[in-house]
Design a protein around this nucleic acid. Sequence first.
DNA 1: TATTGTTATACTCTATAACTATA
DNA 2: TATAGTTATAGAGTATAACAATA
Lengths: 166, 166
Amino acid sequence: MARDRSPLPGLPDWPADRPPKAFSDLSLGPLSDVLGYHIAQASITTFGLFERHVGQPFGLRKVEYSLLMLVLANGPLSPKKLAQALVLSAPNLTLLLDRLQERGLLRRERSQLDRRSQNVVLTDEGQRVARASGAAAVPMESALFDRLSRAEHAMLIELLRKVAGR
Amino acid sequence: MARDRSPLPGLPDWPADRPPKAFSDLSLGPLSDVLGYHIAQASITTFGLFERHVGQPFGLRKVEYSLLMLVLANGPLSPKKLAQALVLSAPNLTLLLDRLQERGLLRRERSQLDRRSQNVVLTDEGQRVARASGAAAVPMESALFDRLSRAEHAMLIELLRKVAGR
DNA sequence: TATTGTTATACTCTATAACTATA
DNA sequence: TATAGTTATAGAGTATAACAATA
């Protein structure tokens, strides 16, 4: 049978002159089992939520937000540790810190123990923005609860942590 | 108590002069419940797997791979539908198709029914690359099974589909 | 007039190499 | 000699506006 030409699961012998009508009818083929693809698709949703609840209201990008949250939750951190936690190269982190510093959200203090190193410290304004935008995470996640139960939300995060593995 | 100054869950009153030592010890604060953050972290893992199993072996980027899989699984598609399925702007899709066409993986045929429209068709070489790289998805996903059971992998994809909602 | 696709352009994001200052 | 951080720069990814061809 003609299907023998199709060594992969999910690959139909399509009739070349009768393509599906709607893009939502499209078959994913091998993609349907590729985690990375579904992560990319889901991130479109979460990015939209982020923009609406945090990005636009507070003028923050995703990494800027994550950085503020980390310093808020842990106290002063060196750029070195922030770069590791955010999986950012040192030069990119420098530019990121420059922007947030220019906005008056943080300052860099040289460490007294090792004068090569720095401590990234939130200013008062930085504290305010970090706490307010951090609080916005609650309604942001709630917006997902029409697609996902709370238990599914928690389960999803737990599974993603296993994938991230750190 | 001092904790009253901390209106958000997961926000300790950190001792300003005793930051955590290892970055893996860092508290995520509000981030711990933010799905988008965990998606971003997990995508670092899946992107690495993609690069190793598909990106480098076949010289394909993520969107290029997705595009090939869609045309492989559905047959000739118009740029319009591809742009919707891949959530890509029309100009960017044009450049993407240009690259793949230059490599001889696909060609563009004008539709006879509506001469504004086109059909993106895989060349023989494109079919070969698509089938081979599509087959590489199997070992790529298998590489996750030391972090995730097969059931968890399937569950994770199902939950992500709910989040993506399309 | 509306739609498909292209061109031109700019802005963000990310990656690398070379540099400084401290250790 | 090694490490923390910076500067400079280039590449990839993405967004918008203006345009051509067809409907």
